[in-house]
């Protein structure tokens, strides 16, 4: 089986500082990869390099495109990369405000990607928006409301709907549950788990919340100071951490 995403030796420096260094992994279709680590460990830098928001200093990000098979997204032309990020990729931001158009209605937010890939039938666009609102458990009567009147949890769910409407194959998530209270987090995680399984999505999830990766991720990478210090199956890494930092991380989780 061809990996959906092959990451080879990604490196990103900010001047003399290391953003992330020598990160390599393969992601297979339907697989969810978790990246954990403390603040400043380079998780978000890595994710932004993978999603094409930042240009890495070295390394390759090879994505298995529908049309031409595996292609390096770092060296491909910008129109191609932007096309990928509208169709086959999705990016869920930590703050829903970064990923939504706050002055456009919920339906318009979901419809934007459809219109960006050439859908020009209002009725179809609206039906699909309403369908997706249902899938992320938002009442369809809210379709013409702006996200600014939504609660934090609803905004995050709307952002997910907006991203998944074009049926992407790879989802990047940057702390998708950050800033939500625990009961809302639980529902969102449940929803995400359902969607990931149902649509057979591959995902790269960056988080500092070990509970999130325990629930969602098949495999786990632990990052510290820009480097991967440990990688393996999620349960294996969390239940039997080998590296001193991972042991610290696992033991730092508060038990209720």
């Amino acid at each position: 089986m061809t990996p959906l995403l092959q990451v080879k030796g990604i490196e990103k420096h900010y001047g003399a500082r290391i953003g992330c260094s020598d990160v390599s992994f393969d992601l297979y279709p339907g697989e969810v990869m978790g990246i954990v680590g403390e603040s400043g460990s380079g998780k978000s830098t890595l994710l932004n390099c993978l999603a094409g928001h930042l240009e890495p200093d070295a390394g390759q990000v090879i994505f298995d495109t529908r049309a031409d098979g595996p292609a390096d997204t770092v060296t491909m032309s910008e129109p191609e990369r932007r096309m990928l990020s509208r169709t086959d990729w999705a990016f869920v931001h930590q703050h829903a405000r970064d990923g939504l158009r706050m002055s456009v209605s919920a339906g318009g937010n979901i419809g934007e990607r459809l219109m960006a890939v050439g859908d020009r039938h209002y009725g179809t666009i609206r039906d699909r928006a309403i369908d997706w609102l249902g899938r992320v458990e938002i009442d369809e009567t809210r379709v013409d409301d702006r996200p600014s009147v939504f609660s934090g949890g609803m905004q995050q769910r709307l952002q997910i709907a907006r991203n998944l409407v074009t049926g992407p194959r790879l989802v990047f998530m940057d702390e998708p549950t950050g800033g939500l209270d625990v009961s809302v987090q639980a529902r969102l995680l449940d929803l995400l788990r359902g969607l990931v399984r149902e649509m057979g999505l591959s995902a790269v999830i960056v988080t500092h919340d070990l509970a999130v990766v325990r629930l969602l991720a098949d495999r786990l990478m632990v990052m510290k100071d820009g480097r991967v210090v440990e990688a393996g199956l999620t349960d294996q890494v969390l239940d039997d951490p080998q590296h001193a930092y991972t042991q610290l991380l696992v033991s730092s989780v508060l038990q209720v």
């Binding site: 509208r86 158009r101 456009v104 209605s105 339906g107 318009g108 419809g111 934007e112 990607r113 219109m115 960006a116 890939v117 020009r120 209002y122 666009i125 609206r126």
Partner: peptide
Amino acid sequence: GLMHVKLYE
């Protein structure tokens, strides 16, 4: 695509 978002609205 964004231009059509305005018309959609």
